[in-house]
Every structure is written in C-alpha cells, then in structure tokens.
C-alpha cells in the first residue's frame, strides 16, 4: 500500500539528515510498527508519509502512485491520530467531531465510535474539561471519522490507562481485520509486540532491522527452556537448549520425577532484541 524508497529528510535549520535513506513497505491489511527511542525519526517519517512535511528526498508510493501526485483528496482515505490532543477546547466533543465530519465525503457512525471509546456519555462536555486520556480517545475518534483505508497512529496508547489502552488495541486489530492498514510509531515495546504484523527498528534516522515480531524473536531469541522445581525445600533452576528438547533425557527425567514449579521457553522480549540489535535503550529519552 505504501512503498518508501531511499527516504531522506533534513529539517531546514539542521545541518544533517534526520532520516537517512530508509526503505520499507507497508502491505495492505497489515499493522506496521516503527519502534525507536525519542528523536529516532519516527514522527518525522509519519509526517512525511501523511504529506505534512515536503522537501524530502527519495520516493514514496501510495497504491503505486507517487504521493506528490495526490491532491488534498489523499486525506479522504487516511486517518491520523497525533500524539498530542488536537481539539477546540471551548467546543464540546460532539461539536468538534461534527465540524471535522463535514469536511469528508465518507462518514463513520460516530455514535458507535464514541461508545466504543467510552466517550458517548461525555459527548456534550467541553473538551477543555476532558482528562488527557479522554482527549487521546477523542483523537482516535477523530482519526476514524472518515472511515479511512489507512490509519496513522503516533504513540497511540501514550497517556491511556491499561483498560482504555486495551480497548484501543482491540479497535486497531478490528480495523486491520476489516481490511484497513495501520502505521504505528511508538517507543512502547508492548504496543508494537501485541499489535504489529511487521516492525522496523529505527535509530538515528536509519532502519536497523525489520521483520515480524515473531521472526525477530526466533532470530534473536535465546532458544532455551528454563525449568524450576522444588528439592529439599529449595527451588532449583535448570536451563536446557530448546533444540532437541523432546529427546533430552535429563529434561524428561526431571519432568517425570520432580515437583515442577515453572517451565518457560527462553523467548526474548522485543525490547531486549531492540537493545541487542541497536545498542540503544528505548526509554533513554
């Protein structure tokens, strides 16, 4: 759906490029994640893809056509949720939504969306009276109100409590399952891990690694099995290589003879893999 070739970008006041020749493809009906620390170039890339930033070098194609050839009609097909709240605070949530709704040809069912994010009861409240979490949820309604084909989400769960973050993640998956395509930028590993079909690690404007979270875990994971059992009132921990585990007699004996407390495969987290691959911690802002 989106194809990015050798993308480079330099802010007018900077001497060096902040995006340094990145290449990636976002396929239709997938959730593609950009994982990286603050200042890595995630939001800048998103702003280029949604045609806010111009003067980039390289090529970007949307449905096979250079995005520079698209007029403002481009925005009929995309929805964008920014990291910060973007509403008129002296207007109610519904007045905000109705204003933006009229600017699009295609309109979603607002009542359904507002109910889904838990804002329907507060629809007539001034946005200025909303909490940060409520404003973020309203951002999502704003992004979805034109029934977009492609959704851009910048740090979508930042500022949300776990319950609302879960609702939002469910909505993103449903959007994908119904044929939509999603581009997410985040520094929150769990968001990317739980949602994305494919992920790119971006550091200092360069993509260091790109694959599905599962493949990355297989590629960089520890491939071991850790077993904990009780013996003489003490917990004993033993680690076995995952390869050939079914034929490992010592492992089988322990399973058969000991009081097993825990059994874990040595699956590395995406955050560990990110640090291993890039040498940069995600929360080093």
């Amino acid at each position: 759906m989106f194809k990015v070739e050798n993308l480079m970008y330099k802010y007018p006041k900077n001497k060096e490029d902040v995006i340094r020749g990145i290449n990636f493809e976002i396929k239709e009906k997938e959730i593609f994640g950009f994982l990286g620390p603050s200042g890595a170039g995630k939001s800048t890339t998103q702003k280029i893809l949604i045609k806010i930033l111009e003067d980039y070098r390289g090529k970007i194609f949307y449905n096979g056509k250079d995005i520079q050839e698209y007029s403002d009609e481009f925005y009929e097909e995309i929805g964008v949720s920014f990291e910060m709240p973007i509403h008129f605070s002296k207007m109610t949530a519904m007045e905000n939504i109705e204003f933006f709704l009229k600017l699009y040809k295609n309109n979603a069912n607002i009542e359904d969306l507002m109910k889904r994010v838990g804002l329907w009861e507060d629809k007539d409240k001034m946005v200025g009276e909303y909490s940060k979490g409520m404003k973020i949820r309203l951002n999502i309604v704003r992004a979805l109100l034109n029934n977009p084909k492609m959704l851009f989400l910048d740090e979508p769960t930042n500022g949300l409590d776990p319950k609302n973050a879960m609702i939002l993640k469910d909505m993103i998956r449903e959007f994908r399952d119904q044929g939509g395509t999603v581009f997410i930028t985040s520094h929150i590993m769990s968001d990317i891990d739980q949602l994305c079909d494919n992920v790119a690690f971006i550091v200092e404007g360069e993509i260091i690694e790109m694959d599905s979270p599962r493949n990355l875990k297989i590629k960089y994971g520890k491939r071991s099995m850790t077993l904990e059992y009780k013996e003489n009132n003490e917990t004993v921990t033993v680690e076995f290589p995952l390869d050939g585990i079914g034929k490992n007699q010592e492992f089988i004996n322990l399973l058969q003879t000991k009081d097993i407390e825990t059994l874990h495969s040595g699956e590395t987290t995406l955050e560990d893999i990110f640090i291993k691959v890039t040498g940069v911690a995600l929360r080093d802002e």
Binding site: I52, E73, F74, Y75, E76, I78, V80, F100, L103
Partner: peptide, 9 residues
Amino acid sequence: TISTMLVTP
C-alpha cells in the same frame, strides 16, 4: 488544531 486541519481534504 492546525495540525489536524492539515490532514483533512
């Protein structure tokens, strides 16, 4: 709010 106006048609 200007940011969100930029991504409308």
